[in-house]
Amino acid sequence: MNEDSTMTPTPTTDPKAQGKATASLVLGIISLALAWFGYSAIAGFVCAVIGTVLGNTAKRAGVPYKAGFVCSIVGIVLNSICFVSCVLCVAAIGTAAALY
């Protein structure tokens, strides 16, 4: 038996929980879009984190959560890569400017 299945709560039709699952999906998609424009990755990162937390809340309430949760996690990873790269580029330019 799959061990995760024991953790799955009873499915519910709570509109609040469904709203959270939808919000998670929307925020996940927004975060994916914001990853590619330099410092907008910070906003994308925040959206992705909120999306992931909302996805987890929806999961605990027993509504379908996977689409939003996965989008948000991909958003966290992409925005992290882009943000840290962006930060380092500025740092490298600053160091180069200081050297010359």
């Binding site: 061990e3 995760d4 024991t6 953790m7 590619w36 330099g38 990873v77 992290s80 890569i81 882009c82 943000f83 840290v84 790269s85 962006c86 380092l88 580029c89």
Partner: peptide
Amino acid sequence: LAITPYSLLIISGWLVGVLISLRKPRPIS
């Protein structure tokens, strides 16, 4: 958009950590 090896390796380290967390037996799901 430049992707630096630094950020890629930090994320790679995290991903390997995730893979290690899939080992069995696991006390949490």
